[in-house]
């Protein structure tokens, strides 16, 4: 218990002192996970909307595959992204392995099915005749999709939160494709794992507190956006 209390106290001292190494790690974490979430939102929401709004053979199978992808184990993603980026792999020539870009790629692979799956269910939950109503109001196909996206904005924002939450807290893939290189690919989760292994609990606790607080702040901001234009 003393260890825990002492760890927390030292963590707050570290945070208050504004340790540059801790701040660099925190900043990189949010840059990497933010970029991965952005990519997954662009890809996952468009693909999810297309899947939800179109009828095609094998649609149920596709939805089942997407839903399965929502629970992809990060280490499996890390393994396959590593193979892809490995020197002899299909994307080896790009030289991305052990770079922040590799972590972005791996995290995007994890987040995309989460965003896509929630988008599919959000769009499918809208009344089918809403599409008809939008078209009847004179909407083009693009305008109709935009109306539906606006109608589903609450669950879609939840998809963004779920995607970000999934990758900011992920460690397996980041350590595998990023390598936890100090000052270059070290992020909050990989640093926490390393510091815990070394017995530097106060640093690990400080990193965990940053992770928790930052997640809370970001999700709170997203919730504000989600609720902002909801009329009363």
């Amino acid at each position: 218990m003393d260890l825990f209390a002492e760890g927390i106290w030292k963590a707050f001292q570290l945070l208050a002192a504004g340790d540059p190494e801790v701040l660099r790690i925190a900043l990189l974490s949010f840059q990497v996970s933010g970029a991965a979430t952005l990519g997954s939102v662009l890809l996952g929401m468009s693909a999810g909307t297309a899947i939800a709004l179109n009828a095609f053979p094998g649609k149920r199978l596709v939805v089942a595959v997407v839903n399965t992808g929502m629970g992809l184990p990060p280490v499996v993603v890390g393994l396959f992204v590593s193979i892809f980026l490995w020197r002899n792999g299909p994307l080896g020539s790009a030289g991305l392995l052990y770079t922040p870009a590799a972590i972005v790629l791996a995290q995007a692979v994890i987040a995309t099915p989460i965003v896509m799956g929630i988008t599919v269910s959000a769009m499918q939950a809208l009344p089918p005749s809403l599409r008809l109503q939008a078209l009847a109001l004179g909407a083009t196909r693009v305008q109709m999709v935009w109306i539906l996206v606006k109608e589903a904005r609450l669950p879609l924002m939840a998809a963004v939160m779920a995607g970000f939450g999934g990758v900011i807290s992920e460690v397996g893939a980041s350590i595998m494709v990023g390598g936890n290189i100090k000052g270059y690919t070290r992020v909050l989760t990989t640093a926490t794992v390393m510091e815990t292994g070394k017995g530097n609990f106060e640093v690990a606790i400080a990193l965990s507190i940053i992770l928790l607080l930052a997640s809370l702040v970001i999700n709170y901001l997203l919730t504000l956006v989600q609720q902002r234009e909801r009329p009363r």
Partner: peptide, 12 residues
């Protein structure tokens, strides 16, 4: 213009 039986108003 089309007025459907169910008003289907937008969330606005």
């Amino acid at each position: 213009a089309l007025v459907l039986q169910d008003p289907l108003l937008f969330d606005a």
